[in-house]
């Protein structure tokens, strides 16, 4: 779903740059967005029976949602980052409160929020996939886990990996990587359903 253009506010090009930075995992962009928006979210969560840790969790969750959005090719900025993050955090937190069985007083909405349900649904699916990969990775054990992380996450060359792990040559490291990869794929696909 395409978000409606936020009332009267023209998206600034500066925000576009920040979002592109976020999509590329640029530390400076992340820091700027973090600094500009965290306090507002923290205040909201603390005022609604959350803790400092909750605020951190929820805000980072929203940042990941924004990151996923910024990364997708079809992404068009249709609201301010501030409005977007606030809306996602608000939705996520109210949802969590409900899950904990707390009574949520739906305050009359004085703040501007936008519809983010679709994005959150996509994010939740993404989170589930992430958790499957994470569990599969973590149940691999060592040295498989570190070996695959070096190759697929840190993008190191087989040559460097062989040196790091003490294999005598890159071919032996490759054989080991293959065995680990097969195990990982098996673990991953036993949880992940291709059919859906």
């Amino acid at each position: 779903m395409v978000l409606k253009i936020h009332s009267g506010v023209k998206p600034e090009t500066n925000e576009q740059l920040l979002l592109r930075g976020l999509a590329e995992n640029d530390a400076k962009a992340i820091e700027t967005i973090y600094k500009d928006n965290f306090k507002m979210v923290q205040a909201f969560i603390l005022n609604n029976s959350g803790s400092y840790d909750d605020a951190r969790d929820i805000f980072q969750e929203a940042m990941i949602t924004l990151y996923e959005k910024a990364k997708s090719e079809s992404f068009v900025l249709t609201s301010q980052i501030k409005t977007y993050l606030y809306s996602v955090c608000r939705r996520l937190w109210l949802k969590r409160l409900q899950q904990m069985g707390r009574y949520v007083a739906q305050s009359e909405i004085l703040e501007e929020t936008i519809a983010v349900e679709d994005d959150i649904a996509i994010h939740e699916k993404r989170n589930a996939d992430f958790a499957i990969m994470d569990r599969a990775m973590n149940s691999l054990g060592e040295p498989c886990k570190s070996l695959l992380e070096s190759y697929y996450l840190q993008k190191k060359s087989m040559h460097d990996i062989a040196a790091d792990f003490g294999y005598t040559n890159a071919d032996n490291a490759k054989t080991q990587k293959y065995k680990c990869l097969m195990r990982l794929k098996k673990l991953f696909f036993s949880q992940y359903n291709i059919g859906e």
């Binding site: 992340i30 990151y67 993404r126 992430f130 990969m133 994470d134 996450l153």
Partner: peptide, 10 residues
């Protein structure tokens, strides 16, 4: 794996 790596880094 790519998505996983990206999110983990983020």
């Amino acid at each position: 794996m790519d998505l996983y790596a990206g999110q983990k880094e983020l």
